[in-house]
């Protein structure tokens, strides 16, 4: 605060002058603010799920239908995609283009596998008799996980776009920030799943309908 004019020119970790008052990248600040906004979005849905927990009037209830082992595998896949994402960013930042491209497409593949798990799960639930129209559990479950899946799909498309950019050479160390904000988005989707996995699967997998 003391050196009033000194606030404008701040160098980032690579010694480049960042032309903003805070020294933060515009894009990264935008992404973090957007993630703050998304916290409220998923927070509202998770709160709705918790409000309606154990209040379905008819079955199937979570205990009849949720399959913890399978979802654990898909959770693991999504966690590993997060790891791949951070490695991709690390290599792109170092200018190691081939490794970076490899890891970006690893994220795409892992994300796609996660989505396939979700498609399988939705299909399976539909066959067993749980649809969004069945009961409150179905409604809250499908809309929450479905919107999470939509976020994952968007992330996969974004990363495919960036992956081709990396192949063509338009995504390089000097604009790695584009990959970094995509990575922030991806990790955020991952932590949302961490919460969903805990709240919907682990905590309420033994719920057998309303008490009494």
């Amino acid at each position: 605060m003391a050196a009033a004019t000194g606030t404008y020119e701040i160098k980032n970790e690579h010694g480049e002058v960042i032309n903003t008052s805070t020294g933060l990248s515009n894009k990264k600040l935008l992404m973090w603010s957007f993630l703050g906004s998304d916290v409220m979005f998923f927070g509202s849905f998770i709160a709705t799920y918790l409000v309606y927990r154990n209040r379905s009037l008819v079955g199937p209830y979570p205990a009849d239908i949720l399959d913890i082992p399978i979802t654990s595998v898909s959770t693991f896949v999504l966690l590993m995609s997060s790891l791949a994402m951070v490695l991709a960013l690390s290599y792109i930042q170092q200018g190691r283009q081939k490794m970076g491209t490899f890891w970006i497409f690893s994220v795409v593949v892992l994300g796609a596998i996660f989505l396939l798990f979700q498609v399988y799960e939705f299909n399976h639930f539909g066959q067993v008799g749980l649809t969004p129209r069945t009961n409150l559990f179905g409604t809250t479950f499908f809309i929450l996980t479905g919107l999470h899946g939509a976020h994952v799909t968007l992330g996969v498309l974004w990363l495919i776009f960036l992956g081709f950019g990396s192949i063509k050479g338009s995504l390089r160390a000097d604009n790695a920030i584009d990959l970094e904000i995509a990575g922030l988005y991806w990790h955020f989707v991952d932590i949302v799943w961490i919460v969903i996995f805990t709240v919907i699967y682990l905590i309420s997998a033994r719920d057998v309908g309303p008490p009494g």
């Binding site: 709705t48 409000v51 309606y52 209040r55 379905s56 009037l57 969004p132 129209r133 009961n135 409150l136 179905g138 409604t139 809250t140 499908f142 809309i143 309303p210």
Partner: peptide, 12 residues
């Protein structure tokens, strides 16, 4: 036709 606000299906 979901049930978030459908009181007949237990919606609050």
């Amino acid at each position: 036709g979901t049930h978030f606000y459908n009181t007949a299906a237990g919606g609050d």
